[in-house]
C-alpha cells in the first residue's frame, strides 16, 4: 500500500529534486552539468535568485503573489510570507507530516517543496476546506485530536489518502496514514475518523 506521500511520487518535487534539477547544490552536480543542460535546451530555464524573486502561487483556487528567495520552502511561504498557518512547521524535513498540503491533486510535505517550484500547480491548504468539511468533522466526532498541532496535516493527509483509497479498510488506514506523527497520542481516534470520513464522502467529489 503506498500513499501519495511516498517520497518517490512522480508529481511531487522534493527539495533535493529541485536542487538537482537546477544544478545548484552539491559538488556532484557540478557547474558542468548546468552548462550542458543549458546547451541542450535552447529555451533555457529562467534563473532565479540568489536574491528575492517574485513568485505566484495558486492557492485554494486564487493566484497569490509574494516575493521570496528561491530557497524558501512552500511551508515558509505559506506561513511566514503569506498567512496560511493551518500547515504547521514541526520537523521541517519531511518526517512528521504536520505541513501536509495538496499540490496538483497529491498530498505533499510543504516543508520539502520549494515555493518557487510550486508555481503553476494548484495548491490546496486546509484553509481551502470549509470549517465543517467531512474530514475535519469526523476528526471532531472521534476526538481524534488533543493539542491539535498535527491535526491540520492529518486532515490534509486524509484527503490525499481518500482520493486514492475511497473505500479503505482499517489496515489501509494504518498504512496510508503512516506519514504523519502525533505526540498527544490520538491515533485510535484518527483511525475511526478516517473511516467515517470515507463513508461520509461517498458521492461527494471533494472534501
Amino acid at each position: 500500500m503506498s500513499s501519495t506521500k511516498d517520497p518517490k511520487t512522480k508529481n511531487a518535487v522534493s527539495r533535493r529534486g529541485f536542487l538537482g534539477g537546477m544544478g545548484i547544490g552539491t559538488g556532484a552536480v557540478g557547474a558542468g552539468l548546468l552548462e550542458r543542460e543549458a546547451i541542450a535546451s535552447p529555451a533555457a530555464a529562467t534563473v532565479a535568485g540568489p536574491g528575492a524573486a517574485p513568485i505566484t502561487l495558486n492557492i485554494n483556487g486564487k493566484p497569490v503573489s509574494l516575493t521570496a528567495e528561491p530557497s524558501v520552502t512552500l511551508l515558509d511561504a505559506l506561513r511566514n510570507h503569506l498567512d496560511y498557518t493551518g500547515a504547521k512547521k514541526v520537523c521541517d524535513r519531511g518526517t512528521c507530516g504536520a505541513c501536509t498540503v495538496m499540490m496538483a491533486g497529491k498530498s505533499v510535505y510543504a516543508c520539502s517543496v520549494l515555493a518557487i517550484d510550486a508555481q503553476g500547480k494548484p495548491i490546496e491548504t486546509i484553509e481551502g476546506l470549509p470549517v465543517d468539511n467531512p474530514i475535519s468533522t469526523a476528526f471532531v466526532n472521534h476526538d481524534a485530536q488533543q493539542c491539535g498541532y498535527c491535526t491540520p496535516g492529518m486532515v490534509m493527509a486524509t484527503k490525499g489518502f481518500l482520493a486514492e483509497h475511497p473505500n479503505p479498510t482499517l489496515e489501509d488506514v494504518k498504512n496510508g496514514m503512516g506519514g504523519n506523527l502525533c505526540r498527544c497520542g490520538t491515533y485510535m481516534g484518527i483511525r475511526q475518523a478516517v473511516l467515517e470520513a470515507a463513508k461520509n464522502m461517498k458521492g461527494a467529489k471533494n472534501g
Binding site: R79, N80, G86, A87, P130, T137, A144, Q145, T151, P152
Partner: peptide, 16 residues
C-alpha cells in the same frame, strides 16, 4: 475541536 481540526485555530507560533 472544529477550530483545531479545520486549521483555523491560531497557535501563538502561527501569529503574524
Amino acid at each position: 475541536g472544529q477550530a483545531k481540526a479545520s486549521g483555523r485555530a491560531k497557535y501563538t507560533s502561527d501569529l503574524k
